[in-house]
Structures are given as C-alpha cells and as structure tokens.
C-alpha cells in the first residue's frame, strides 16, 4: 500500500532534490575537518560534540525565527516516540567521525563512513524499517551497492 503513494511523485522535483543532496553531502568532509581541529583543542570528543551541537542549535533557532514556518508540535507529539531520537544516533555520527578523523585523517575516515552509510541506507529502504516506504533491493540497487563498495576498495587501496 505504501508503495502506491511513492509512484505519484512528480518527476520534476527529483533532479533539484538530487543536486541539493549532493551539495549537502559536500558539507560533511568540511565538518569532519573543523570538528577534528576543535577536538584537538578541547581534548575531548564529547565536549566537541556538545559545542558543535550547541552552535548548530543556535543557528537553527535563528533560521526558524526568521522563516515563517510554524512547526506543528501537537502532531509531532502523536508521532512515534522513536522518531524524536534521531539526535541519539546523530551524536554517534559526530563522535565517531571525530575519533576516525583524528586516527586516520579526513580522506580515509570519509571513505569508511560512506561504506557503513550506504549499506545501512539501502538495507533500511529494503526492510522498510523506521516508518520508511519499502524499496526492495533490485538489480539496479544491487549494482549501485557493488559500485560503491568497489569505489571504497579503490580509495582504501590508494590510501594504504
């Protein structure tokens, strides 16, 4: 049933969304580098994460104040409890990325994170977990997964 809704998206929205997402991804290595430098100064990955999150929270509050968007907090209270906990797994990302960058450098750290990320994402889509529309692994998705893993292999081999 869920699949039905997915088919009616207008295709036009697809490409802008793709470009936007590629740009968003480009911010991550920058964040790796900046947070890594911060952790060197503070001598603590948890404090680095705390300050990083505090700065992000302030930025979001300002943006939300400037925008005309009015979040529907009543509807959000009726959403499943787990959907509020994205920050818990998100903080695992911030701490993990800092530890990795310090130990391995930005290039290898980025590569390793990508592997875990793509496998998790395609797996979540396949299982339809966490309230997602179910998108099963088909030949195209399996091929993409193989390409991503090959790209990572090359990258690690080049870095070694």
């Amino acid at each position: 049933m869920n699949e039905m809704h997915g088919k009616r998206r207008e295709p036009r929205a697809f490409w802008p969304a793709l470009v936007l997402t590629v740009l968003a991804g480009g911010l991550l290595p920058l964040q790796f580098a900046v947070n890594g430098a911060l952790a060197d100064h503070l001598g603590s990955v948890t404090l680095t994460g705390t300050l990083s999150y505090a700065a992000g929270t302030l930025g979001l509050l300002v943006l939300l104040g400037l925008s005309r968007q009015r979040p529907d907090w009543t509807a959000a209270r009726q959403a499943p409890r787990w959907s509020w906990l994205g920050g818990v797994v998100g903080s695992a990302y911030v701490v993990g990325s800092v530890v990795l960058t310090q130990a391995l450098g930005t290039a290898v750290a980025t590569t390793l994170v990508i592997a875990a990320q793509v496998v998790t994402a395609i797996g979540l889509d396949h299982l339809g977990g966490l309230g997602l529309e179910r998108r099963r692994v088909n030949p195209a998705r399996a091929g993409a997964l193989a390409l991503v893993l090959a790209a990572l292999g090359l990258r690690l081999w080049g870095a070694a």
């Binding site: 009015r70 509807a75 959907s83 906990l85 990302y93 701490v95 993990g96 390793l112």
Partner: peptide, 27 residues
C-alpha cells in the same frame, strides 16, 4: 567509530524524515 558514524548518518536521516512529516517543517 566507523559503524557508529555511518549508521548514525543513514539511520538518523530515517528518524528525521518521520519527525519532519509530523512537524510539517524540516527545520
């Protein structure tokens, strides 16, 4: 660290998609 970072990014996105749907704004 690797597993935490990768899973955190991908799964965190799924959590947020669900919450953003209820709130009506990604911000």
């Amino acid at each position: 660290g690797t597993l935490g970072a990768g899973i955190g990014l991908a799964a965190g996105l799924a959590f947020n998609v669900r919450l953003a749907r209820a709130l009506g704004t990604p911000l």
